[in-house]
Amino acid sequence: MHFVVCAKQIPDPETPPSAFKIDATTNEVIPAQGFQPVLSQFDGIAAEAALRIKEAAGDDTKITVLSMGAESAQAAIKQVLAMGADEGVLLQDDAFEGGDSHTTAQVLAAAIKNLGDVDAVFCGRQAADWDMGQVGLLLAEALEWPVAILAKDVQIADGTMTTTRVLADGFETVTQSLPAVVTVSNEFGEPRYPKLQQIMQAAKKTVTTQTHDDLSINPGSVGAAGARLKLERLFIPESDTQVELIEGDTPEEQAQALVAKLQADKVL
């Protein structure tokens, strides 16, 4: 089988709010000093899901990592290669920049069609920067494949994908015929940490770079030119709350003072 893992490099989501800054003139996040961009955590979990299926099958299943982004996104690809994926493709082109979820999905879909023999695509439930959670679905629509979102378990065998997905009040198990797309949620579990030896092996694995020419994409249909959603403003919401710390000589005094406040505010 041939699996694709979609991987996105993002600003480190562990950047503390105090170091998180926005350039209001460009509507872009200013990279925080001391925080390197990382593989979006959910994409690491998606890679883990693909690897476990490959390992359980014990066959010659191939896993290709796709990432659309700048040259620096090589690091995200290398990380998934170190986890155990086989090949990487960086989709890098000025024409891809400034796009939205729709244009990202179009580029990824073109790359997947270009690979030709893909059985399943694994995406994270959302990228931990924009938190939209829609590229996996749009990709499935572009490929005209079924999609299961928010997976906490995925199995693939005999041409069928069996997914247990997270609902508001529980879980449901669904089956779909391959080829199919799945988006994997944090409930799946932690991704593996590559060992040093695997990181060194990953350095030798092939990563090709593809542009709109390689994918026969009209540059006017992707990136900023093809975006359907226009970012008007990116801003840090202002908090109008000023915390009142409740003082007291003992926890009992503090607790009673707090409850008195809550009663005065008619919350209790």
Binding site: I22, D131, L231, R233, L234, F235
Partner: peptide
């Protein structure tokens, strides 16, 4: 977006 650090307005 950005884990709640920011908000975005779209047209």
């Amino acid at each position: 977006c950005y884990g709640g650090n920011a908000q975005a307005t779209y047209s």
